[in-house]
Simulated assay, not measured.
Amino acid sequence: MSDDGSDSDEFEVRTIEVGTQSLRVAIRRGPKGRPPLLLFNGIGARWELAKPFMRALKRTEAIIFDVPGVGGSPAPPRPYRPSTIARLAERLITQLGRRRVDVVGVSWGGGMAQQFAHQHYSMCRKLVLVATSPGAIMVPGSPGVLWKMATPRRYLDREYMRRVAPEIYGGGFRRAPELVDALASAMSGASHIGYAYQLLAMAGWTSLPWLWTLKQPTLILAGRDDPIVPLANGRLMARLIPSSRLEILDDGHLFMVTRPAETAAIVEKFLDE
């Protein structure tokens, strides 16, 4: 059932029951000639944060869902692991009648994307990792930035978000503070428990032991000015994933938000190869 009348020509937004979990799902309509693109969003972000990127796709159907506890997806009764989200995504894709997908993961969602590609490798054709890392074993950002990331306050207090966004996200947010309001609106849907579950999901998780086993062609996109996930993490993953390459954008952590058309063009070129 659709739950959003806006953008109805481009997007189908509805709630889908996947087992015992309700998921708010958005599908950006597109041609059916190749697998759809499954997106895993960043921490605390509703699907709307990815809307400009999804809208910029020219030749691709795209599917995204609010993680349990965020946006229109109610919190689950207990904490979960990345393997839980990967399994939930696999069941969703199967219910939607798709057999294979290309996968994009952004920041926190990059961990979910890696887990999905590893856990459901036969369903994942290509993998795109955006501003992300191998998890707990990574080159960390500055302690001050990580401390600000550990609390959902920036989603609840817009003035606080305006103050800290340039320091946290870098890149375009240093040059265009007006981007903050759009960001805050799209990241206001995480409950306290939902945000805590997202943090707990990544506690101790790392893909380093098995990155070398990933079979999918992989595109790694990283921002040169990323205070949260330093560029060294992209370089590390590019060395460990066999069929991978790294592209560096002259921007910060959220270049999918600040430069959606450019990012979409890079991703679609990779998917077309």
Score class of each variant (00 low, 15 high):
Ser2Ile: 05
Gly5Trp: 02
Glu10Arg: 13
Glu12Asp: 15
Arg14Ile: 01
Val18Cys: 04
Gln21Cys: 07
Ala26Gln: 10
Ile27Glu: 10
Arg29Val: 12
Arg29His: 08
Lys32Val: 07
Arg34Glu: 15
Leu38Met: 10
Leu39Asp: 04
Phe40Gln: 08
Gly44Gln: 07
Phe53Asn: 06
Arg59Tyr: 12
Ala62Trp: 05
Pro68Trp: 06
Pro68Arg: 05
Arg81Val: 11
Pro82Cys: 06
Thr84Gln: 02
Ala86Gln: 05
Glu90Cys: 14
Glu90Trp: 11
Leu92Met: 08
Gly97Leu: 10
Val104Tyr: 04
Val106Leu: 11
Gly109Ser: 02
Gln115Thr: 09
His118Ala: 07
Gln119Asn: 06
Gln119Thr: 09
His120Glu: 13
Met123His: 10
Leu129Trp: 01
Gly135Ser: 00
Ala136Gly: 04
Met138Lys: 15
Gly141Asn: 02
Ser142Ile: 07
Leu146Trp: 04
Trp147Ala: 15
Met149Tyr: 12
Ala150Lys: 11
Arg153Val: 12
Arg154Asp: 00
Arg154His: 05
Met161Val: 09
Ala165Leu: 07
Ile168Asp: 04
Glu178Lys: 13
Val180Phe: 00
Asp181Phe: 01
Ala182Ile: 05
Met187Asp: 03
Ser188Arg: 10
Gly189Asn: 06
Ala190Gly: 08
Ser191Lys: 00
Leu200Ser: 14
Gly204Trp: 04
Gly204Leu: 10
Ser207Arg: 02
Ser207Trp: 02
Trp210Pro: 12
Ile220Gln: 00
Arg224Phe: 01
Asp225Tyr: 06
Pro227Ala: 07
Pro230Gln: 10
Leu231Trp: 05
Ala232Asn: 01
Leu236Tyr: 00
Ala238Phe: 01
Arg239Lys: 08
Leu240Val: 04
Arg245Cys: 06
Glu247Gly: 07
Ile248Cys: 00
Leu249Trp: 02
Asp250Trp: 01
His253Ser: 03
Phe255Thr: 05
Thr258Ser: 06
Pro260Asn: 11
Glu262Lys: 14
Val267Glu: 03
Glu268Ser: 08
Phe270Trp: 00
Asp272Ile: 05
